[in-house]
């Protein structure tokens, strides 16, 4: 079945079947390899992408459900080579170690900041609960999300 959808702001079309997952569509067909498979069971969040602004585990979503949706991967976050505020905060706070969970982590945090520009610490931790990181103990990641929220609000005012 041919479906149409938007990825990182660009219209796309692809042939999908019932066995194809969204992660397969993104990685294999569109070569968006920032989307990582860490568990294939929706338990680690490494494959997180945003569908219509909502974080989902792309390893669980049937590719056909991308039909008519707007999908964001981390490849679509930097604009004109300029890192997003959140990406920059991840660098500044050393929220990245091996990097395998990073794209999913950033997308979940991005979705949070789109909804709440002044999240509580608990909001941040709860939002990130489905993204497992084995390197950082989450401490610098939470700091980065907090810093990004502050910077975004400061830039606005």
């Amino acid at each position: 079945m041919k479906i149409e959808f938007v990825v990182n702001g660009e219209s796309c079309a692809a042939e999908v079947d019932s066995a194809m997952r969204l992660i397969d569509l993104l990685r294999e067909e569109l070569r968006l390899t920032s989307v990582k498979e860490g568990c294939g069971a929706g338990e680690c969040g490494a494959c997180t992408v945003l569908v219509d602004g909502e974080p989902v585990c792309s390893c669980l979503v049937p590719a056909v459900q991308a039909r008519g949706r707007d999908i964001l991967t981390v490849e679509g976050l930097a604009k004109d080579g300029q890192l997003s505020v959140l990406q920059q905060a991840f660098l500044d706070c050393d929220a990245v170690q091996c990097g395998f969970c990073t794209a999913g982590m950033i997308l979940t945090a991005h979705a949070l900041l789109m909804k709440k520009d002044n999240p509580t610490d608990e909001d941040i931790r709860t939002a990130l609960a489905g993204n497992i990181c084995r390197c950082t103990g989450y401490v610098p990641i939470e700091r980065a999300v907090r810093a990004a929220a502050d910077r975004i609000r400061a830039a606005r005012s």
Partner: peptide, 15 residues
């Protein structure tokens, strides 16, 4: 900051 950071936050660090 770590040297490989920019590639990792943009999804360009290929495993």
């Amino acid at each position: 900051p770590r040297a490989d950071g920019p590639d990792k936050v943009t999804g360009r660090y290929d495993y």
